[in-house]
Design a protein around this nucleic acid. Structure first.
Lengths: 382, 382
DNA sequence: TTCGTTACCGGGAACGTTCCCGGTGTTTTC
DNA sequence: GAAAACACCGGGAACGTTCCCGGTAACGAA
């Protein structure tokens, strides 16, 4: 009853096992195995995409010609080209970037990994970078590591797998192992760090003059008569929090003020912890008369806590933040803060990456340090 | 001097033109054209990627087997599998997602297009969506249309070209033509609108009860004694600004207050225009005693303007915003506002998309309306 | 023994592009 | 009027995967 598809014989057929749920046969005379295609297994009925060959067939030309017409380059008759363009419109053809990238080995895409983006800073950086990159014809895919090392590694892996041409990163506060970024370097995929960076990786970096900014902030506090200046510092894992701490110390030293260890607290950047430490500082036998925080959200949290305790700002205690978030102008009193050129950070990072992407020869990694500026508002002077 | 590569003859060779900068010859006896490969044209020295076949060659097995081992499925000897895994680690092999997506015709990626993301709202939505999507194994690429219709179209085109499996959109305030989104529908790529949506497209939508929220806000103003309530409305192109306006009108009508046309101003959501109109309202012969704005940034701008004019809030004029941005709790006085479940908007949109992506049969588009809640702060009651 | 079954594995065709290379007319040049 | 140049176009091999299908050895049962 089973007929060999080759010799059409019915006998001399053996069963030879069930493979993937389908009976297989063996024809002894033909010395060949065979099985019968099941009805639905013919094709998974994949939705047909209109491709370059569909256009080619329609116009009776070759796919090479269609490709040439689409890329709008050389070796194409204007008439043919127009015909292709018309057909493309008619069939609503969309080029498949996947195939394109596969053969070109480049995706015209750069990845951006940021640790968070509900605060003002990172979105603004991304927009700055994106504008520059878009002008250069690059797409951008944004990843959000959520301050989690695992997520960051997963993000990096995903970007590597999708073969981005370059990477812009600000790492998480947890990140101490940078192997997932070195994987890009090994493949000659340029990486640029911004804002937060690994000091012992030889990559391009964009940052601001954190130390000088912090110095100016603390100097300003000293010059307005403060002596017990507390500092809520960021985690030690972040270079910029180390630098801001250094700026703080520089100022104290230069003005001959001894550093009180109890006034310097390094924490994990969460508002919960910030709240705890602010209260702790205020509860000290000798509370500080000024507070310099690692960033604006922390300063604003401090502002709320201090006001809720009925203390006067800046009379009883002065506050300085860092980065001049728009909110800092809206709170009452306005927050004195160190502004950084957020948009430029993004733009400069993107430009650095682009230069690296387009340079033919070996590119020397480069570090760009942008200036900071002290913005004085009501939280330090009445 | 020129030898035919076939017959090795030297005479009977003609030049037959220079094509792409290279001399071409014709051998009359072989009846064949030929040219000589230039040295550097051999290969563009493309950096070699380590692929599945490299691993296969190294282990002396076929690429099919390596592929099987990597996908960790059936029909693979545990020993072979382990050997492959070891080699993968040793050679630092990274799978090429482009090739994978090309053959599978799916990218496991969904695109998100938002009109802006410096304000609190959209980043938060994105995070909500991303969490849900990541759990389901999807990657996310975020596009930022910057409230520009052209950019939005470009974004949509790029996402289509890179073959995302689904799309989450909040369109720009300029968008009146939705053809670029219909292109996804034509290809059976599910689209979910959130926050801002096109009413006459049959797609899934996630929104909040704008009308009820606005009603509650205005009702609250009326109940606290206000009668001349102004409304700074959003552009008519956005369904949610229309709905909020409707809620405003409902409340006035229900409480028997006639609508004053001069008190309802629709504008383009920029702070510059907001400032102008706020001042305009305050300069009216009969200025309003309350202001309900389309969103929180506008309300906060109003708050600043009003305070700078020396007017008291809420005594002289009360303010209500919309969406409960974190800033609204920080300004002084605190801003009464209508909160919406921002995170849930993202999550729900993602879930809707996922259901559509995984459902076998035809999926009926669905609209989810999430509740709003009035948050009363100092800008309306002392 | 001999057949049926299981457990693996390899070959090769997709997927949708680009690019190289070689063809064929037609036009220019000497 | 032939040789050289030009203007177009087509074929087919990449790119790096997955998937189908068929092969082979080993083993259990009849």
């Amino acid at each position: 009853m089973v007929k060999c598809p080759h010799c059409q014989q019915v006998d001399a057929i053996n069963k030879t096992g069930i493979v993937r749920g389908k009976q297989r046969y063996f024809c002894k005379s033909c010395q060949v195995h065979f099985s019968f295609p099941t009805a639905e297994a013919t094709r998974p009925m994949r939705r047909h995409q209109v491709t370059i060959v569909d256009i080619a067939k329609e116009l009776g030309i070759s796919k090479s010609t269609v490709s040439r017409a689409l890329r709008g380059q050389s070796d194409i008759h204007p008439g043919t080209r127009q015909a292709v363009l018309d057909a493309v419109k008619q069939f609503d053809y969309q080029p498949n970037l996947l195939a394109h990238s596969l053969v070109k080995s480049r995706t015209n895409t750069v990845g951006i990994i940021v640790p968070e983006f509900v605060s003002f800073f990172f979105p603004k950086v991304i927009i700055g970078a994106q504008n520059v990159l878009a002008d250069a014809g690059y797409n951008v895919v944004i990843c959000h590591s959520n301050e989690s090392y695992e997520t960051e590694v997963a993000n990096a892996r995903a970007l590597l797998a999708s073969r981005v041409d370059g990477l812009l990163v600000s790492h998480t506060k947890e990140t101490r192992n940078f192997e997932h970024f070195r994987a890009f370097q090994r493949r000659d995929i340029p990486v640029v760090f911004f804002n937060r960076f690994c000091e012992d990786m030889t990559v391009s970096k964009v940052t601001v003059d954190d130390q000088a900014g912090a110095f100016r902030a603390v100097e300003h506090l000293i010059q307005t008569g403060r002596r017990r200046i507390a500092h809520l510092a960021g985690p030690d894992s972040l270079a910029n929090s180390r630098n801001r701490l250094n700026g703080y110390r520089d100022a104290l030293r230069q003005y001959g003020i001894a550093e009180e260890p109890e006034l310097v607290i390094s924490y994990d950047l969460t508002l919960e912890k910030a709240n705890i430490y602010i209260n702790h500082l205020l509860n000290l036998p000798q509370p500080p008369d000024a507070l310099f925080t690692i960033n604006d959200p922390t300063a604003i949290e401090a502002l709320q806590v201090i006001k809720s305790r009925g203390l006067r700002i800046p009379d009883d205690i002065a506050i300085v933040g860092f980065s001049n978030d728009p909110v800092s102008a809206l709170v009452e009193p306005g927050l004195t803060t160190v502004s950084q050129p957020i948009n430029e950070i993004g733009q400069e990072s993107a430009r650095l990456l682009l230069r690296q992407l387009t340079s033919e020869e070996k590119f020397e990694p480069q570090t760009v340090v942008l200036p900071t500026e002290l913005i004085v508002r009501g939280s330090t002077v009445a």
